[in-house]
Amino acid sequence: MKGIWWKVLGIILVAYSIIMGLLGEVPRLDILNETIRVLYYHVPMWFSMIAMMLLSVIFSILTLGNYSFNRDLWAYEFARTGFLLSSLGLLTGMFWAQFTWGSFWTNDPKLNGTAVTMLIYLAYFVLRGSVEDPQKKARLAGVYNIFAFVMMIVFIGILPRLTDSLHPGNGGNPGFNQYDLNSDMRPIFYAAVVGWILIGLWISQLRSRFIKLSHEE
């Protein structure tokens, strides 16, 4: 198995976050109650999604500079994994919102921004699927991916901070110090983020190796 150490590390970190995320001490807060633990599982989906999209856009820029089948493939696979992670983040977030904010969907800027971002990335997949020639596909998709990444940063990183949001850390007070992330929660949360990024890398790597194999035959 290639790079077994970081794959096992990813498994260990996520397993640690599952165990300690449920058994560790958390602040006792109204409304949130025990659901504050969802933070360990919901938020890492977004962190790892952004990491995947960042890797995707890096490979897109690389393939724009100098086309190679591998670079274009990596750009595509990272975006795919990022989309999977964001879907899971959206579903878990909706479930959490139903029991804390009282509705599956609110007009929170972060929710709408995320929905738009996911549509932008869906268009990326549609664009890729509609071009036959691999070089032309890589070029068009690469340019579009840069646009998609910038839009993602604007929609989920900048706009929610400019207005009021139900999400913590938004509405003019960015950063993690405002978060309800105390010293008990921080190591578990960061372990989950790193663990899920590694698992995301792993899934992307498996898929791109599979695509490469099926191309060689």
Binding site: M1, K2, K7, I11, V14, A15, I18, I19, L22, I199, W202, I203, L206, R209, F210, L213
Partner: peptide, 20 residues
């Protein structure tokens, strides 16, 4: 949760081995 995650991890490892 650990059983489910262990299952998924095992699945990924087996898939990785087969691809290798």
């Amino acid at each position: 949760l650990l059983i489910i995650f262990a299952g998924i991890a095992t699945y990924l490892i087996r898939l990785d081995r087969k691809i290798s």
